[in-house]
Structures are given as structure tokens and as C-alpha cells.
Amino acid sequence: MTPTHEHPSDGTERARLAPALARAAARLAEAGVASPRVDAELLAAHALGVGRGRLLLIDTVRGNELRRFTELVEERARRIPLQHLLGTAAFRHLELEVGDGVFVPRPETELLAGWGVERTAPGATVVDLCSGTGAIALSIADEAEPGLVIAVERAPAALEYLRRNAAAFGVVRVVEGDVTDPGLLAEYRGRVDVLLCNPPYVPDGTAVPAEVAEHDPAEAVFGGADGLAVIRPVIALAASLLRPGGTVGIEHDDVHGAEVPGLVRADGRFADVVAHRDLAGRPRFATARRR
């Protein structure tokens, strides 16, 4: 993507944006990026400091802007996650800080967060386990009127992002803890209204995209040989923490469409177990009510 130079040394030379975008999209497609045109446009908008929608109004860019755009495209072609290059990930109505060491929230998790928002009554106590960036917890704080949202995370790097993202929400309490510890949040036993969790659930050895394999922390992705190593203790913890009538929602891998609802039923302390699919029709999360 070589600009047309007029003053090569001072960054004021101009180049047309449309051909640069086309070349960038082709480069990303060649590299195997799933959404090359969208990614190219988002990277261009980031390099130019404008919203993506304003690109249609821009005909030419400065040489230094084009060089920055080209650098970003090459990094994306190496399968560095788009969100890491932008520094943020969009989730429902939020822009969350992301980077190395924290799991990038996925669009399909917005469905579980929305389910939780709908079930959070004013003043409710909500727990988000395996919180990561805080995507679910902060969506609850942003869209509902909870009295308290407890966001639990174990990994030190992820906790840094969680604390920064949660700083604007006074109702959110960040807790460092391991969700497989049956004594976690013991002071809230029987007092929680809504419990949500997007745990690591990909079975060990499953092939994943380069962005996931090389940049998402493995402990936030993989959940043991069958993918259920974290989900099993989370179900037991949910039963301990929820008040009678409280609700739980747990995201899972699309291969767990029968297993996770079955595990929730087998616990014996839940009723109204429901399996939910994502927008692509794949099994995605299970919900239930505490007896």
C-alpha cells in the first residue's frame, strides 16, 4: 500500500483511501482473517481517529496516517486480535479495555448477559463468575438497577483489565477468587439473586483460531479434557450462593448442549432448567431456578 508522495519526509503527502482499503481487505483475506473488509475499515477508522461510519466521507489521507494504517493491517495479518490493535472490544452498549492476558469477550455471550439483565430486579445482588474483562457484570450494572454486582476473576492480568473497566461503576465489587473453591463468597451464601458465568469450556485439544491459540489466555479458553472441569464446580457453587427462587445462567461449548443442562438437573437443587441457542442456532447456555 504505497502512497502517492508529494512531500515524503514530512507526512503531509496524500493518498486515496478507497484503494488503500481495498488492498488492506485483500491482504487480510489472504492471511485468513474471517471478516477482512470489516477489519480493514475498523483499522482505518482507528488510524484516522474517526468512527467507521465517517470513512465514506473521507477521500484522501495523509502519508503518516496511511503508514499507521498499513502497520495495523500487517499486525492483523499476523493474526493479532483486532480488539488488541484497537485496545477495546465492543460488548452490548460498552467499550471494554482489552489486551494481552485477558479473554476478548465474544458476541454470543451478549445473549447470556441480556438474559441476566432481564432477570435483575432493582436492588438485586448479582454474581458474575470468571468475569474476565467484566463484560457480563458491567452490562448488568449498565442496563439494570442492581444493588450489588460481584465480579470474580482469578488471573492477575485479567484482574487489571477488570478493575479498570469496572472503575466507572460504583455498584460493582471486584473479587479475586477461584470459582472452583466451594468456599468462595461464603458470606453471600443463600443471598444471591442472579448468578452468571462464562467459564473456560473448550475441551482440551480442540483446534481454535490463531487469535485464540496465540493471544487469549489458555486458562480462560480450555476447560479440561471434556470442557466441563470448571462448569461442574460452578453449578455446585451456584446452588450454594443462590437464594430460593434465584436464577443461574452458564455459557458452554456448542458440544455441551445436552451435558450442561443434564449436570444442572442432576445437582437436584434446581428447577426450570432451560437450554438456550445462540443466533446461529448452536447450543450456547443453560439457565435454571434455585429450588
Results as ranks from 00 to 15, higher is better:
N198K: 01
A286S: 14
Q83M: 03
L48T: 13
V174S: 05
P122S: 11
A124N: 05
G87K: 05
L94N: 05
E97I: 09
Y188A: 12
V127D: 00
I231W: 04
P122C: 07
A89N: 01
F69A: 06
R27S: 14
R291S: 06
F69E: 07
D253H: 14
E219D: 14
A90K: 08
Q83Y: 05
A18Y: 11
R68H: 09
R52S: 03
R37P: 15
R16I: 12
R282A: 15
D254H: 06
V102E: 04
R76K: 05
V273T: 02
A218R: 14
T125N: 10
G49N: 08
T2S: 03
V127S: 00
P122E: 12
E30R: 13
Y201F: 08
R265S: 06
L112A: 03
F270Q: 01
V264H: 10
D181W: 14
T125D: 02
A29G: 15
T2C: 04
L96I: 14
I80M: 05
T133P: 00
T133N: 06
L82H: 08
H256M: 08
T247Y: 08
E145A: 14
L28Q: 01
T88H: 10
F169Y: 14
R290S: 00
V194I: 15
A155S: 15
V273Y: 09
H215S: 02
H46N: 13
E160T: 15
R52H: 13
P203S: 13
V127L: 05
L72G: 09
S131W: 07
T4D: 14
T88Q: 08
V98A: 04
S139D: 10
L242K: 12
Y201S: 06
Q83C: 10
L129S: 02
E259L: 15
R284W: 12
V127M: 07
R106G: 12
L57M: 11
I140R: 03
D100F: 09
L85T: 00
R173F: 00
L185F: 03
A151M: 11
S139W: 05
T206C: 15
D254K: 03
H84Y: 13
V174D: 02
R163N: 14
R67C: 07
R78K: 10
E74M: 04
I235S: 01
S139C: 10
V38A: 06
V264M: 15
L138I: 02
C197M: 11
A158C: 09
W115D: 00
E65K: 01
P182Y: 07
A24D: 06
V171D: 01
R68F: 04
N165A: 13
A288V: 09
G177L: 07
L21H: 10
G183V: 00
F103E: 02
L111A: 12
G51N: 03
L129Y: 04
R23A: 15
E110F: 06
F285H: 06
P3E: 01
P244L: 03
A275D: 11
F91I: 11
T70F: 03
L228T: 09
A25N: 03
R282V: 14
L196E: 03
E6R: 10
A157N: 10
T287E: 11
D39W: 04
A266F: 09
H215W: 07
R16A: 13
R62P: 10
R282H: 15
T120F: 08
L159Y: 01
L237M: 10
V212I: 07
A157Y: 08
G49K: 09
